[in-house]
Simulated assay, not measured.
Amino acid sequence: MVKFSKPKAFFLKGGSKAVLLLHSFTSNTVDVKKLGRFLNSKNYTCFAPLYKGHGHSAEHLILTSPRDWWESVEGGYNFLKNEGYQNIAVIGVSLGGILALNVGQKMNVNGIVTMSVPYKKDVDLLKKRVLNYALTYKQLEGKEKQQISHELDELETSSFSSLLQFKEYIDLTMEGLLRIKKPIRILYGELDEPLYKESAHYIYKNVSTHHRSVKGYSNSKHLMTLDPDKEEIHHDILSFLESLEW
């Protein structure tokens, strides 16, 4: 077996303005590490929690649910509060964007940035994503093809009830968009599936705040924070943060 470093949360201390950074589904904090380093270089304090079940095998991931992921996010928010940060903005990509919208609905934040957020999701597509993640993870572990094939067959017969909960969680999040009264910037990749452009404009139309904007990036797919437009995205997010009342 190949040993590889397990992903983990990161905390980058800066000034009194704090940012909670939230990664995507089946991924980990590497999604937001470059953004975090950039914002930290501009004197923002950044914390990115690793959601429960993430950074491990797919078999481990499907044993967790949106409730578990939310607890990780809530823990990250409280960590910043306990560290003395009273002013917090939240930024999330994909699942992280869904969670960021929930933070904006339930907690006191100065502003919200979402990237590549789905306003609906099909359970079969979520299952396909988990299986693709499982394949990649097992290859990184250095397992033989025959063993990987056997383990993937077993995984396919497992319960994917957590994915149905994920779909329902997205639906509930969208139903609560009217509760978002704080500034929000909604970003999407023009090279991503059309759903995400639709989602961006749906969120834009349904939040209560008048301080809102939506923007697409022509060279970005789904993981915008790692795509060719990332430097433009970094500066656009910085500009948004600088426009907030802290």
Rank of each mutant, 00 (worst) to 15 (best):
K3A: 12
K3V: 14
K6M: 14
F11T: 02
L12F: 15
G15W: 12
S16T: 11
K17D: 09
A18H: 05
V19R: 00
L22E: 08
S24I: 06
N28D: 15
T29D: 04
T29N: 04
V30I: 14
V30K: 13
D31S: 06
V32Q: 12
L35S: 06
R37L: 15
S41V: 11
Y44T: 03
C46V: 11
F47Q: 01
F47P: 00
A48E: 07
P49Q: 10
P49H: 12
P49R: 08
G53W: 05
H56G: 12
S57H: 08
E59T: 08
H60N: 12
I62V: 14
T64M: 03
D68R: 06
W69A: 01
W69T: 01
W70Y: 12
S72C: 12
V73S: 03
G76I: 04
N78M: 11
N82C: 08
G84M: 10
Q86T: 12
I88D: 02
A89P: 02
I91R: 01
G92I: 03
V93A: 03
G96K: 04
G97P: 06
N102K: 15
V103C: 07
M107P: 00
M107Y: 15
N108D: 14
N108M: 13
I112H: 00
V113T: 05
S116K: 04
P118C: 09
P118Q: 08
Y119Q: 07
Y119P: 00
K120T: 10
K121T: 10
L125C: 02
L125W: 10
K127E: 13
K128G: 04
K128W: 06
V130Y: 07
L131H: 05
Y133D: 08
A134Y: 06
K138E: 14
Q139V: 13
E141L: 15
Q147Y: 08
Q147M: 10
I148H: 09
L152E: 00
E156S: 11
T157I: 06
T157C: 05
T157E: 15
F160C: 00
L163T: 04
L163R: 01
L164E: 13
L164S: 10
Q165P: 00
K167D: 02
Y169F: 15
L172H: 09
L172R: 12
R179Q: 14
I180G: 06
P183C: 10
P183N: 07
L187V: 02
L191D: 09
D192F: 04
P194K: 09
P194H: 08
L195H: 02
Y196R: 03
Y196M: 05
K197M: 08
K197Q: 13
E198D: 15
A200S: 13
Y202Q: 03
Y202V: 05
V207W: 05
V214P: 02
K215V: 03
K215R: 14
G216T: 09
N219H: 14
K221V: 07
K221G: 09
H222D: 10
L223W: 08
D236R: 12
F240T: 03
W246E: 13
